[in-house]
Design a protein around this nucleic acid. Sequence first.
DNA 1: ATGTCC
Length: 470
Amino acid sequence: MDLTQIDRYEFRVERRGAMRVPGVVFASRALLSDAGQSLEQVRNVATLPGIVEASYAMPDVHWGYGFPIGGVAATDPAQGGVVSPGGVGFDISCGVRLLAADLTAQELAPVLGRLMDALDPAVPRGMTRGGVWTPHDRDELRRILTDGSRHALERGHGEQRDLDRCEDGGAVDGADPGQVGERALERGLHQVGSLGSGNHFLEVQRVAEVYDAPVATAFGLHPGQVCVMIHCGSRGLGHQICGDQVRRMEQTMRQYGIQVPDRQLACAPVDSPAGQDYLAAMAAAANYGRVNRHMLAEAARRVFAEVTGARLDLVYDISHNLAKLEEHEVDGVPRWLCVHRKGATRALPPGHPDLPPDLRATGQPVLIPGTMGTASYVLTGVPGGRAFHSTCHGAGRVQSRHQAARSVSGRQLRDRLEAQGIAVRPSSWRGLAEEHPGAYKDVAAVVEAGEGAGLCRSVARLVPLGVVKG
DNA sequence: ATGTCC
């Protein structure tokens, strides 16, 4: 691999062959050695029609479907730029919601076990069918897809701040349920308000350290405070939409005269029927994902109110699997671009017009879910942010699920975590073992590289008190 | 990630 070190946390993948732009990897040397074959995917993405600046990789980059997870690529629709479902991922709008309690960890300690026992049955997850909210009929599901959290609020779920503190005000524009296939709708009907499995979780956390007190205060966070972090996506609906759209684009690519080095990079011009239909279906899945997290938050609120009397206020909700049409300056010239972020988080800088007014001065909250035994981070966007204002999204796997499950048993892991004072409510022993902390990169090293590369700034570190595992 | 293969 032709890698040139530009800076301590920046490497360039030199242009060659069909690459239209270079690759840029933001990582330390140690993290780079974990990136493995995913750098070949960074190269492949650089060949996409209309790609601008570079094919970027975040510090937690690893192998994914077509695009690497931890990849950022922007294309210019005016220059034949494409949109690719593989650049968003199968779990469309997978993301993180963080809520802050008016409660300290010290106050929670005596009732933590009772709280976890109450959350356990209140959070649907794993293989079981059903979510916390079954839409009345398909028309109501379509309203969820079109209006996202705005519809949930209209139906009496949640509060105004849940929209104000959610990316895009709780709903992405341009969603068209007409582009969502029959099977996707069927799968979506019974999963609103459910975690799923894999690395998805609902955690009760403690603010262990604050690195930037004024920004933390603006976000609504202070040391010792109890928080709830929810990490999940758009479940079977998003998965079905991605699969349906990839299949269609494999067909249409030929008629648009597009050639890609990997068929998993199936794509279509943004300004084509196939491209526009994908974006409309993707937006519908994005709204489903927000409502999913919105409803799980409501379930957590109810349990917290019953057991502790505490309130849960939304800090922020942000997706790390999404494509968006955004304005960015390229060589000093503003252009509208289709920015793919897959396992990468938007990180708007202070002063950005898309921020809610009360966060305008501080920058956008960036939520980084860690692994069970370690920590999660709250970051913020910085002026002059790189990679179209993007940063990392999590720790990133280093062990396969199979390897992980072989290295520890679920019961052993539960005992180990409980000995550390972390209460665990798994949905399956196998699923728990697959997610043991050693299966992931060191999230602290990922955050350090992101900050060192000028992608973001640390605001707070959160540590788990209790884990409800998907 | 995913009713881990329609």
